[in-house]
Amino acid sequence: MTTAQRRRLTTAFVATGITLGAAACSSADDFAPGGRALSYDRVRTVALDTIKNGTDTCPLGLDFAKAASTAGITGAVAPDTHGGHAVSGDAGDGVAPQPWPSGVTHPPSLPEQPAVPPSAEITCAYTVGSSTVEVQLLAVSKNDVAFNLMLPRLRQAGQLSVDDLTTAYNGRPGIGETRLTPGPGSAAVARIALNGAGDLVMLVSQGSSDADRNPALAGEPLRKATETLARQIG
């Protein structure tokens, strides 16, 4: 399968997930309390402040050094300021429905890609010894769609084949759960409950610039560190 075909398949996953999420309409009130004091609006406010002011301290109570220690990950942890500030933010106002890319097979009931809801992103970069780690938060204003919008990054971070991406999609975490990507588990994703409408996911992985992945930053230690981070957030 070519790169273009893989991208089209990922696009179809994302679009289907947005539609299914809109139909599900679940609420954070139905799930475990982790992150319940946190709302989509607060995440967006923090992301916008990060864009404006810059910082090297990961916000929302996130402390990867403590999470790594809890998970048994060794190596000195420090903010990665190589490219500027260690923390970056982004915010999107959403995207109107779009035509399907050429070659994508879609259900007859979906004549075009569904609208993408407004979103907010925060990325915290760290060095762990000679390796790098990224903690990415993606919050959206609509329930049950953030995981699907994170799929392109999940595929890259986890170095996933098409079959692996399908497995990851079918085994996506519920709110309060943390899952590793298939294979060596080189990325972990957690879903975190929000107060009110919206959806929040956290993706933790080695930096995309790392040519050689550190096996000590994968598998169960990575899952446990991500789970700990998800519990810190607030």
Rank of each mutant, 00 (worst) to 15 (best):
A4G: 14
R7N: 15
A15C: 12
G17A: 05
G21T: 06
A23S: 12
A24Y: 06
A24D: 07
A28I: 01
D29P: 00
F31T: 06
S39H: 10
D41V: 15
V43I: 15
T45F: 10
V46N: 05
A47L: 13
L48D: 14
D49Q: 12
T50P: 13
I51G: 11
K52S: 13
G54W: 08
D56V: 04
C58A: 15
C58Q: 07
P59A: 00
G61D: 08
G61K: 09
A65M: 02
A67S: 14
S69N: 11
T70Y: 09
I73Q: 05
T74D: 09
T74S: 14
T74Q: 09
G75H: 00
P79Q: 10
H82G: 06
H82I: 03
G84H: 06
V87H: 00
G89T: 02
G89N: 02
A91N: 10
G92P: 00
G94T: 00
P101V: 09
V104W: 07
T105F: 11
P108G: 11
P108T: 10
S109D: 14
L110T: 10
L110Y: 05
P111G: 03
Q113P: 09
P114C: 11
P118M: 12
P118D: 08
E121K: 11
E121I: 10
T123F: 14
C124D: 03
C124N: 05
A125L: 11
V128G: 01
E134R: 13
Q136V: 13
L137N: 02
L138V: 02
L138H: 03
S141W: 05
K142Q: 15
K142M: 12
N148W: 12
L149F: 05
L151Q: 15
P152E: 04
R153T: 09
R155C: 14
Q156Y: 08
G158W: 06
S161C: 06
V162C: 03
L165N: 02
T166H: 12
N170K: 11
N170D: 14
G174W: 03
G176V: 08
T178L: 00
L180I: 02
L180D: 00
G185T: 05
S186T: 14
A188Q: 05
R191M: 01
I192P: 09
L194H: 04
N195D: 15
G196D: 06
V201F: 04
S205E: 07
Q206M: 04
G207M: 13
G207Q: 06
S208G: 10
D210P: 05
L217K: 12
L222N: 06
R223Y: 00
E227A: 15
T228K: 00
T228N: 01
L229P: 02
L229W: 02
I233F: 13
